Amino acid sequence: MAKRNIGMWLYQNSGGDVIQKKMIKKLKEREIEVLPNINLKDALAKNGHIIYEMKNKNLKLDKLDLFFSYNAGEQTPYQVYLYKALNRIIPMINSYEAFEISEDKFHTSFLLRKNGIRTADYKLCNKDDTYRLQNIMQKWEKMVYKPVDGWGGIGVTKIDNIEALNMLIPFLNQINLKHFYVEKYVDYDNTDYRIDIVDGQFVGCYGRKAATGHWKTNVTSGGSVFLREANDEIVNLAINATKVLGLDIAGVDIIFDRKKEEYIVLEVNGIPAFATPEQEKLGLNFNDKKIDLIVDLIDRKALKKG
């Protein structure tokens, strides 16, 4: 069998460079050559090919056997646009279709609920129907506004009363939104479970808790990571959510609704980070397992050459 060649774009901060080296070494042992740091932002599409300029030659990315994109922090609209085009020709991890769904909070919640997976109650309404938000607020008492395509808790706003909503609406109108997506505020203990899934298998679990006096658990919003064990119910919920969305790799955020006394899926991240060196010192030891499962996945999905 001829060697297979794949492209990789994996984040380099927070220990990502070390993860990449380990992954490349394991792939090379399987006669899979890796072209690292392929950022589609720097590629050019022309005449049926997607070209990436390298030092000595121009690489036709559409001739690769697979492309692995894993860098949430540096995504650009152009890069994502080419991601979609390239996935029409070669395999991806994750597929563009699954990636696109996971990037949109409404489509994620809509699909999960249609498949019987518990989420927070949500509403999506036209930007011109702001009166609907006022009706929703009166019914729910508390709700959370979320940009459908945000991540890391950026732009997420808790609305406690009708006065706060009336102050938020003019701001939302100024940024020219097409629609409003809101979720009913869930009564929880300000902690969550992050469950990592690769290729339908449980990789690891850790907890996140909001800073004192705050409610967001995202690390980028001041939350912190702690060791936490998952039970079978949580793991199965995460595996099923990942399957419904069609993701090869996912980080599923789960919280316990104290009012309904049940676990719910809060969000699904298609590019969940590996444990950082600092987190590994805390005891998060799932990186090697995650690397092995991703290598197995790449080996299986990369185009075979006879």
Rank of each mutant, 00 (worst) to 15 (best):
E100K: 07
G207F: 05
I175A: 07
F171N: 10
F110G: 06
L165P: 04
N115T: 13
L177S: 08
D129H: 13
K114S: 09
M167G: 04
R132D: 01
D199Y: 11
Y96R: 00
V148K: 11
D121L: 02
K114G: 01
G207D: 01
K142Y: 13
M137Q: 14
T191S: 13
Y185P: 00
C205L: 07
N135T: 09
L172I: 15
I154T: 04
S95C: 13
I162W: 06
S102G: 15
A210R: 05
Q138D: 15
K142Q: 06
E183M: 02
K209A: 01
G153I: 01
D199S: 11
G116F: 07
I117P: 03
M137E: 15
F106K: 04
I175W: 04
W151D: 13
A210Y: 14
V198L: 04
F106H: 12
Q138S: 15
Y96H: 09
L111P: 05
A164D: 15
H107E: 15
D187V: 06
I195K: 06
Y131R: 11
Y185W: 14
V144G: 07
E163V: 00
L172H: 12
L177D: 07
I197H: 09
G152L: 06
Y193P: 14
E163W: 06
F110Q: 13
K123P: 03
Y188D: 08
K139H: 05
A211W: 11
N173I: 11
H214A: 05
I169W: 00
Y181H: 06
E183V: 07
G200Y: 09
W151E: 07
D128M: 13
W140H: 05
R208L: 01
Q174P: 01
Y206N: 06
Y131A: 01
G116N: 15
K127Y: 09
D121S: 02
T157Q: 08
V148F: 03
I197N: 04
W151R: 03
A120C: 03
I117A: 09
Y96N: 02
N176M: 14
E103L: 08
S102W: 08
N161H: 13
N190K: 12
K114N: 08
N115E: 15
I136H: 08
K105M: 08
N135G: 12
E103D: 05
L112R: 01
K105C: 04
N173H: 14
N126W: 00
I159N: 00
I195H: 06
D160F: 02
H179F: 15
Q134R: 13
E97T: 08
D199E: 10
E97F: 14
S109Y: 10
G200T: 10
R118F: 10
S95M: 02
N173A: 06
L177C: 07
T119A: 00
C125Y: 12
Q174W: 12
S102F: 10
L177F: 09
C125R: 01
C125T: 15
F110Y: 15
N135A: 04
A164N: 08
C205E: 03
T212I: 00
I195G: 03
V186D: 04
F110W: 13
E100S: 15
C205A: 01
Y185D: 08
I117K: 03
A120Q: 13
V198M: 07
V203F: 11
D189R: 00
V182C: 12
N161Q: 10
I162H: 02
I195Y: 13
D104Y: 09
D189Y: 03
I195N: 03
E100M: 15
L111K: 15
Y131D: 14
Y96Q: 01
V144E: 08
L172G: 15
M143D: 05
F99T: 12
G213T: 13
V186E: 09
